[in-house]
Nucleic acid binder design. Structure first.
Ligand SMILES: [Zn+2]
Ligand SMILES: [Zn+2]
Ligand SMILES: [Zn+2]
Ligand SMILES: [Zn+2]
Lengths: 148, 148
DNA sequence: ACCTAATTGATAATAATTATCATTTGCAAT
DNA sequence: ATTGCAAATGATAATTATTATCAATTAGGT
């Protein structure tokens, strides 16, 4: 599984450097999280203190190009990265307006809409859906404020 | 209709300046379009050559705060603005991978997904969906390249 | 062990957006 | 109509995420 990223790099004639391995390891250890380049940089520095942030940006772009990593914007003025789990139709993200948590939503439910559009002549290759509101914890607190 | 924006500004004790009127007018004349701050700046300069781009940014932020204007990111490294048509559940956007056109999609089709999440304890207040692929024109050309 | 093109780290450059601040102005009260 | 002043503006500096540059280092094939 971790070996396979090694293979993908070799197959595309990219070198397997300690920096690239360290960045892949951080991403692998934080599945389900959505980290910024700087957050990944700070994680990687723990094991590779000499690494430069330019290498982190370059490596992330490479991994995005190789479709190993998915790059998202949640409109915060910077990007977040996570392992690409291999679905062309990627999972959705729920963002809590109160606590800021990002929760992944695996259900698709867009097939119907995409079907309508394809009947209309579109070809849909991907989608990006963000849902906003209150996560269950914040929603519960809002309904029962006395339990705070 | 244009009067109402005047009213909204006054009601919230903001001054109705020529710059704000000019920016609202540009947005009003380009409904269905999705312009960047700079594009709006260039439009407004035609009637108000003295305007500064800082005023455009400030006014757009104000209008977003007043929920008159909606601000979107299409991951191009800058934002785009359009009149908020008053729906809390905003229309979707289709982006053509080939010609770059942005087409609005009015159909919702997210109620089912949002219902599932609300059963799970979430409260969904808004969503943001971007669809990617080929617009009908580009899709047709791809299927019949000889007609180019 | 050697060679060389790829990679790295430091840092400068870029570009969108925001902050600063002196000047101007909308508008409410006179 | 005139005045007073907080709000708004325009010019521009600052900020911030990201990209480009380039000399030094290194992975991986020979
Ligand atoms: Zn929450
Ligand atoms: Zn995710
Ligand atoms: Zn197209
Ligand atoms: Zn739109």
């Amino acid at each position: 599984m971790f070996e396979s990223y090694h293979q993908i790099l070799k197959r595309n004639r990219y070198k397997v450097t300690p920096q690239r391995k360290a960045i892949l390891e951080v991403l692998d250890n934080t599945r389900g999280m959505h980290f910024t380049a700087e957050e990944i940089y700070n994680q990687v520095k723990k094991t590779n203190p000499q690494i430069g942030i330019a290498t982190v940006y370059r490596t992330l772009e490479l991994l995005v190009r190789l479709e190993i990593v998915y790059k998202s914007s949640f409109d915060e003025g910077r990007h977040r990265y996570e392992f690409y789990e291999g679905d062309r139709h990627f999972h959705h993200h729920f963002l809590c307006n109160k606590c800021g948590v990002i929760i992944e939503v695996e259900e698709d439910y867009l097939c119907q809409l995409e079907g309508v559009l394809e009947e209309r002549g579109f070809m849909i290759s991907n989608h990006n859906l963000r849902l906003y509101g209150l996560c269950p914890a914040c929603h519960r607190k809002e309904k029962h404020p006395e339990t705070r």
